[in-house]
Design a binder for these strands. Structure first.
Lengths: 331, 331
DNA sequence: CGATCGCGGACGAGAAGTGACCGCAACCCC
DNA sequence: GGGGTTGCGGTCACTTCTCGTCCGCGATCG
């Protein structure tokens, strides 16, 4: 077992043990830590003083358990959990969610990911890479997000003020190798941007992270310069001229609003339509409202509703549907 | 600041600091911890003895940094990071990935999630719930996975051997309230199953987690019984009679294999087809191969390829496409 | 070369941690 | 209801660790 007989080490180990299993008999804990039960009680007290609420129950089958406290204790994860965590965070950070807003969690996810990989042993890092390479990316998300590895490298370099060498493909397709000082990472809409001081050009630039390749920290640290704006987000906002074209989609679905909602799963707004006043039993109708950047998604949502559709707007989506029909029609 | 002047508390804080930023000058660290530089060095030593490799560089611009070690140190996350982490793990655990296998990470993700929420302060837990409720579920995933909250409750109860009260909707639609002893959680294909001892019936049952509602730990712990099989996975496997019908989809895409791959993003297998020997310049063709449970996905993949499609198999998918066409055709 | 920073030994005052007691209270099973 | 199990916390004496202040050494950068 471990040879460290330190008090703080033992406290840390106790914390891990309490996280690994919910319920521990006191005797077993004392045994594992190699101390007397009395000292274990003192250790538990110490944890409580540190703010981690440890519940205890007496009687046979009694023991200790770690409860939810005021602050988050350090998480002791095993290898598999850490790998799963890194993969999940990669997905969340570079993910294709947040079309309608609703997740402000991408940036904290990225920070957490940076913390994890910084201390992750190389063998685990390899497993993460293998797994995230093997994990299938659904077709609708294939071109959506940036490479998680690049995103992470950039985020770390920003946090640690380290110079970065990277290859950038500009909007016109020109590829350049650049050496930059990254100052801030900003998520705008569905894209990540990084504000950098371009060492070759001696000026500020805003780069789209999904156009960056082969980012690598060059080791050297730099002293942050003053940004040409109040913060990185403002710089990006200003440098974005062409906002991504959002399509406001509406359509009438020939089913009840509840049915449509259950099939679309909150991805689109659905509101019931008043029955038409034509005498007969009014057919169920509802109106679908969504806004998206990708007409394929909109079209897919329409089909997913599993009912007839009419009054589709905008015209571009109607054309899109016509293309689908012509492609899918049997020759 | 903090009033705890304890040594172990300080060691923990030092660990957090080292995780929060990559590079720290020793003086600043000593300052923040409120100790002399000499004591800081001793603290760093302590961390090293605990197995955390702390690199140090001397000279001006020197300082400490936490390197990757042999094992993963406890992660010190702040509130936002913890919330992002929980949301990401929920997605990974209940997620709709893994259709083709390729992610064995769901189960460790669930374990990690259980650890996190167990110690998560209530205010953070509320934020996680709010965020995951607000986060849009794409239509193709709406009905796919089980409720993450239920999944988590079940996983915790399995781990901690706690009795569970739940409402179950059987395959025939009958709803029953049950009290069970959960013994194992198994992911098979895309579904989660839980092997339980049903207290009301006095027998083993295999429940589909996506059919469980209102799962709540009833507090009481139980002594695990011997499973009616070598392990939980075997029990589930045996109790599954009707395997989910997988559709083996093939089609010919009228574009190059590379184009198709880049558009489908590895979600389907694509292989080039030999040019036909008809004299003229051979058009680019490739064959698409995929297996899915949901024909909507398959159809969507076909459109997503952005080219003409022919020789679609199976017949069910052709019918599916015909339905799409009729629905989408302008009236 | 000198300034800056990390390294680590020595020392002494003070503060802990530790185990072995003890009696007490809660809880479960018989 | 009683007995066994388990956690709680006080006390005491002994040991150990912690901490700040010295000091000289070596590495690194400008």
């Amino acid at each position: 077992m471990r040879t460290v007989a330190n008090t703080s080490s033992r406290t840390l180990r106790l914390l891990s043990l309490l996280q690994a299993r919910r319920h521990w008999p006191g005797g077993e804990l004392a045994d594992r830590l190699g101390v007397s039960p009395r000292t274990l009680r003192r250790d538990v007290d110490r944890l409580r003083e540190l703010g981690y609420p440890v519940d205890a129950t007496s009687g046979p089958d009694g023991g200790y358990r770690l409860a939810a406290g005021a602050s988050l204790p350090p998480l002791a994860l095993d290898d598999e959990e850490a790998v799963a965590l890194a993969v999940a965070l990669q997905g969340a950070a570079s993910g294709s969610e947040g079309a309608d807003g609703a997740d402000g969690a991408a940036e904290p996810a990225l920070r957490a990911l940076a913390k994890v990989v910084q201390v992750m042993p190389p063998r685990l890092r390899r497993r993460v890479e293998a797994l995230s390479a093997a994990s299938v990316r659904a077709p609708w998300a294939a071109a959506a997000g940036p490479d998680p590895a690049v995103l992470l490298t950039v985020a770390q370099a920003c946090r640690d003020a380290e110079r970065l060498a990277l290859a950038y493909t500009a909007a016109d397709g020109a590829r350049t190798e650049r050496s930059v000082e990254p100052h801030g990472l900003v998520r705008l809409g569905r894209r990540w941007y990084v504000v950098v001081w371009d060492l070759g050009r001696g000026d500020w630039r805003t780069l789209r992270v999904d156009r960056v390749r082969d980012a690598a920290a060059r080791g050297g640290r730099f002293r942050p310069r003053e940004l040409p704006g109040p913060d990185a987000a403002a710089v990006v906002e200003r440098s974005i001229r062409t906002a991504p074209a959002l399509h406001a989609v509406t359509a009438v679905l020939h089913c009840s609003a509840d049915e449509a909602r259950s099939r679309l799963g909150g991805w689109a707004h659905v509101e019931p339509l008043a029955a038409q006043d034509d005498g007969g039993p009014p057919p169920q109708r509802c109106r679908l409202l969504m806004s998206t950047e990708d007409l394929d998604w909109a079209a897919f949502a329409l089909v997913r509703a599993r009912c007839d559709v009419s009054d589709v707007e905008p015209a571009a989506l109607r054309e899109h549907l016509a293309t689908w029909v012509s492609r899918l029609s049997p020759p």
